[in-house]
Amino acid sequence: MKNLTGIVEYEFKRIIAKKSFYLMVAMAFLPIIAAVAIKHYGHGAGLGPDKDYLWLYLYGTPRSIFGGGVLFSVVGLASYMWVFASLFGGDMIASDLRDNGLQLLLSKPIRRIDYILGKTLTVVALLYIVYLIGSIVSLVSGYIAGGHQSSIILVPLLPMVLALASIPLILLSAWIGAYSGSPMTGLLSGIGLYFLSSTIAGVVGLTAGSSGMMVRMMDYGVIDPIRASTQLATLTSMYLTGIKTMDLPSPGGSVVHYGISKLFIGSWVNLAVSSVIIAYFLARWFNRKSF
């Protein structure tokens, strides 16, 4: 346990020594600029339900389902969660490989599994802190742009969901980064996986025809861990605030009423199972690797 704490301290120090960490924290403050712009240059203009497809593609969340109530809490965070997860996952192992840190740490009385566990826990904990900052900023932004914000309970909760939901992307980026020996490859692969996942979800949605498109896209999160991670914040928020159905608008103008319980449970199960599977294969590969 003492040795695990040592790894956690090492990883914490490594991340906070990076300039990109502070860039990410700075990004968490961006919603304030958006909120001020909305307040002064046309409240609601250009952010209405007609843009739901764009929101869904990028964030896994049709914006209109919240009616603006917790808009910033969700969108403000999800918009950079995948970048952050890929960035710090990508160089979690790869940077240690490059600067001899891995050799030094693994020569200590530390199991390889503890090395991965300690590093992953640290990244998840730091993600939670940054998301929490983002969530508080988003709440303030919500007040600026739209006045009263409902469901303040979500402010500490959503960052937790997002941090946990980042695990598959962190592990995959870490694996690819370590395999290639390049933190940049890890980062780009993580971002690539995110866009691939979103694109597949879009294609899957299109096959259902216009009225069922969004339903299919949301359904896809039950089988794709990356998709699940981007829509879990939305689903969890809805579930905890008592929203039982989604009204999903289709391109034809009709509205689909969709029950979320099944989707909520399915996405969480998918996330948990995928995380365990990815972690298992990463640990297996890492345990057999010579450095």
């Binding site: 003492k2 040795n3 704490t5 040592g6 790894i7 301290e9 090492y10 120090k13 030094l104 740490l105 200590k108 009385p109 530390i110």
Partner: peptide
Amino acid sequence: YLMFRADGMS
């Protein structure tokens, strides 16, 4: 310090 922490020292 971090190397000695990884060794398990307080």
